[in-house]
Lab assay of single mutants.
Amino acid sequence: MSGIALSRLAQERKAWRKDHPFGFVAVPTKNPDGTMNLMNWECAIPGKKGTPWEGGLFKLRMLFKDDYPSSPPKCKFEPPLFHPNVYPSGTVCLSILEEDKDWRPAITIKQILLGIQELLNEPNIQDPAQAEAYTIYCQNRVEYEKRVRAQAKKFAPS
């Protein structure tokens, strides 16, 4: 494992614990031996107030490669969400998460999670990743928002 990646992720964890947006979660997972795995984080993004996503808490896994922060983490909703920019596998399609697009090593975990929260309610229809959600979003916004509200209710924190 890269010392650069681990040191950056340790800084990220410290900064997150000191200050993070209300309702968001970002925690490194534990290895079988109980030690912390900084390369694999369990996160959760709350649906934004005043949107059909409100009330939901959407679980996301963030996986970092050894060359982080040169390369972005892979962000994957578990379980996958109904959304035009979420692949059926759950992987998020967002330009700041793509090395050859808008990724920059200075982007923080907090910025990534806030960017994904923004994307939930403002899909990028130029870059669809899920045919069904994309089609319904474009053709029947009322039905799309109904499905999103049902999903938010399903993923409401207990």
Score class of each variant (00 low, 15 high):
50 G>T: 05
38 L>T: 09
29 T>Q: 07
99 E>Y: 14
31 N>P: 07
76 K>W: 12
54 E>G: 08
158 S>V: 11
50 G>V: 08
134 Y>P: 05
54 E>A: 09
137 Y>G: 02
91 T>L: 14
28 P>Y: 00
53 W>D: 04
137 Y>L: 07
152 A>I: 04
93 C>E: 06
54 E>T: 10
58 F>M: 07
68 Y>Q: 02
36 M>R: 10
33 D>F: 01
118 E>G: 09
68 Y>W: 07
47 G>R: 01
87 Y>L: 02
91 T>I: 14
148 V>T: 04
57 L>A: 05
138 C>S: 13
113 L>T: 10
2 S>V: 15
98 E>Y: 15
6 L>V: 11
102 D>T: 05
5 A>Q: 13
86 V>Q: 07
136 I>E: 12
120 L>N: 02
59 K>H: 14
10 A>I: 06
15 A>M: 06
136 I>L: 10
147 R>G: 07
16 W>V: 02
130 Q>E: 08
102 D>A: 13
141 R>C: 11
70 S>A: 13
68 Y>R: 03
54 E>R: 06
142 V>Q: 12
3 G>H: 08
153 K>D: 15
128 P>A: 13
61 R>M: 10
19 D>E: 14
10 A>V: 09
144 Y>V: 01
143 E>C: 11
41 W>G: 01
87 Y>N: 02
157 P>L: 09
156 A>P: 10
40 N>T: 09
23 G>P: 04
157 P>M: 07
22 F>Y: 08
99 E>I: 02
25 V>I: 15
129 A>C: 04
99 E>Q: 09
39 M>Q: 02
5 A>I: 15
133 A>R: 04
112 I>R: 02
158 S>F: 09
32 P>K: 15
84 P>W: 04
52 P>R: 09
157 P>H: 13
49 K>F: 13
24 F>G: 07
82 F>L: 07
45 I>G: 04
130 Q>P: 03
123 P>Y: 04
152 A>Q: 05
139 Q>E: 13
25 V>M: 10
95 S>P: 01
85 N>W: 03
22 F>A: 05
60 L>D: 02
60 L>C: 14
62 M>F: 14
42 E>F: 10
85 N>Q: 01
38 L>E: 07
151 Q>P: 01
116 I>L: 15
76 K>H: 15
125 I>T: 09
58 F>N: 01
12 E>T: 01
112 I>F: 15
145 E>L: 14
141 R>A: 10
103 W>C: 07
152 A>W: 04
27 V>W: 06
32 P>M: 14
90 G>R: 01
9 L>Y: 13
16 W>I: 05
99 E>D: 14
108 T>P: 11
97 L>F: 07
68 Y>G: 02
88 P>V: 08
26 A>F: 13
65 K>R: 13
128 P>G: 13
130 Q>S: 09
19 D>Q: 00
83 H>A: 03
79 P>T: 13
65 K>M: 15
23 G>D: 05
121 N>L: 07
90 G>S: 03
79 P>E: 14
37 N>M: 11
140 N>H: 09
14 K>L: 09
131 A>F: 03
108 T>C: 14
66 D>F: 09
32 P>Q: 14
128 P>K: 00
12 E>A: 00
22 F>V: 04
148 V>S: 03
3 G>D: 14
40 N>I: 07
150 A>S: 12
140 N>S: 13
156 A>L: 07
17 R>D: 00
20 H>R: 07
34 G>E: 09
42 E>T: 12
131 A>K: 10
62 M>Q: 04
95 S>K: 04
70 S>Y: 12
45 I>P: 07
132 E>M: 09
110 K>M: 06
18 K>Q: 09
3 G>S: 04
26 A>K: 05
116 I>G: 05
78 E>D: 12
67 D>N: 14
102 D>I: 06
90 G>C: 07
18 K>F: 06
74 K>R: 14
134 Y>S: 11
77 F>K: 02
16 W>L: 05
119 L>D: 04
151 Q>V: 02
74 K>N: 15
138 C>L: 07
132 E>W: 05
97 L>M: 12
